[in-house]
Write a protein that binds this DNA or RNA. Structure first.
Lengths: 142, 142
DNA sequence: ATGGATGCAAAGTGTTTGCAGCCAG
DNA sequence: CTGGCTGCAAACACTTTGCATCCAT
């Protein structure tokens, strides 16, 4: 992706567009479906940029989340996963292959996912996920 | 609660009813609303039973979860919380006071919470929670 | 030259594991 | 007597922190 555009995305949120941050954002944007962990992100970028420290990856991802550029998924006690899509949407977590993927057809309406208040409590985020075994793993084991 | 009844609950699930396990189950059942962490459970029971080890609490809770006597809630990267209610139900997590409580009126129907399959994937559990600031904390800060 | 960002290592937190001793069946 | 459970400490995985260095303004 165009580096200029990435820079602008960061600056638009008041984040200084350093080389590391641009790289991490770029990688994240190529991974809208896979919800990579901090470690995966570190491994991929570190291989092209051996000076990158893992702490920088964590710091950067936290910065992104705080500024609304990414969202973090905490599923079933697994490692945190990062998603460049910040709109709430349901996920499926496969306990066999550990993949996390989006579910398009969950019988939950947007009204619920975008609730801002419930029983007097103020809502920041609505998290919905299904835990089970994915189609592919079901096939393999049968 | 009646110790005999607790023993029977454990035996019915094929769990040997040791003293520690009975105590932990008893405490859990008094806490259907508060969703205690392993540490809270440890602190409370350890104070009446100083030989209890934390590892035993973790082992026991894992045993309970594996046998369907309790469920575990993993919320937003916080510590695991345990719930003697195994039926799926939505929760609210307050980022200020860190309480986790049940939400009765979430606009999600039981059909969704009890889904067993979606897009070809087999579902074990449906997790729904809201993250935000609770009524009480809103009052305090205003 | 000033403040923020990075790299590195160390610390921290929550959880699991290995193993010896113990208890109940 | 035997297997499973407990207690303890050490190991573990993931994440955060402290600090010196570096870089861009």
């Amino acid at each position: 992706m165009d580096v200029e555009k990435l820079k602008q995305m960061l600056e638009a949120k008041g984040i200084r567009p350093t080389f590391q941050r641009i790289k991490i954002l770029e990688y994240l944007l190529t991974q809208k479906e896979t919800h990579p962990t901090a470690d995966e992100i570190y491994e991929v970028i570190h291989s092209q940029m051996p000076t990158l420290a893992k702490a920088t990856v964590y710091n950067t991802l936290n910065t992104f989340v705080r500024h609304g550029i990414a969202s973090v998924l905490m599923i079933s006690g697994e490692e945190a996963r990062y998603d460049p899509v910040v709109e709430p949407h349901p996920h499926f977590f496969c306990v066999k292959c550990k993949r996390v993927f989006n579910i398009q057809s969950a019988p939950i309406d947007d009204k619920c996912l975008n609730l801002k208040e419930i029983e007097g409590n103020k809502i920041f985020e609505v998290h919905v996920y299904f835990r089970g075994i994915c189609k592919e793993c079901l096939k393999k084991s049968s």
